[in-house]
Amino acid sequence: MDLTTSLQKLAAYRPKQSQKSKETFEKGVALLEHGGYLKQGDEGWDALERLALAALDQDNLEVADRCLELIAERFPGSPRVDCLIGIRMEATESPDVVLKYYDELLEADSSNAAAWRRKVSVLRKMGKVDRAVEELSALLDTFYTDVEGWLELADLYASCSQYVPILLISDAQNLMSARYTYALQSLSHALLLAPQNPSHFLQFAETAYLAGDITLSLKMFLTVVDMTDDDDGDVSPSDSIPTGMTLRAWFGVKLCTRRLLTEPRLLTSSGSQTPAPSSSNISTLDDLSTERLRTAYLDIKNESPPATEKELIAVLATLIK
């Protein structure tokens, strides 16, 4: 792993208490006891770093401290270690102290992107969302290619309602869509940076749906379908069974077409002025997506799907989660 990607990973670190960290932790502790890491050379240090993060994730500060001590002894003054120490501090110290630590790091080297990202996440945890947004925007203005950063910015916009320029707040509906429009803008940067990743498209489509821009959302969902369905396989696309992301995209298509068919107002009220598909195309897409969803349901549950559309959507909504 080279330095930049490791720093980016560290910067994007967030405690999750996941199953995976538990596994890493249990395996790692045994190795740590035997001093096995020190014999492996560079890979050992990488593994030790992972163990430290996993230990923090599992709230085992003792093990984390031992790992950190070993690492800090070997690599004094490395930005990666500074960042790890910061993450360790976040576990016990008050946010103000940690924030000060990161500020000091940034003062010493104003281009330390990892410390900058950590600062943003601390700000976010403290609830200072507006400052987090401000810092993250400045960071992305300098380090444009940080896809994770753009996704986080989109997430920040979508999850908070505090930070929207005052001018735009005229009523609740506007407020909602303004939030999501900002999120969409951030996501479009992520799309530009990684146009090969369908999950960003899916996120864009879902955000557009929430923003009430149904025609844009429909097109994006269809793009995801186009990207993820297995059209290189032996079966023709119409005989394949949608799974995973494709299924989720078809579900999105279904939701969009239903809303477009029931609320014709939405055909022309797109915030991004995305032209709607022709009405015959919409109804055909509606049929097609129903058929796709039924196929998927049959495959997952092994029973015939519910007859009405409403029930089908309700049942699938629980399946896709």
């Binding site: 429909l218 097109k219 793009t223 379908v225 186009d226 059209d231 119409s238 598909p277 897409l285 097609l288």
Partner: peptide
Amino acid sequence: VDTRILKKYG
């Protein structure tokens, strides 16, 4: 993309 998908699925 709508026409493309519809064509793809026959």
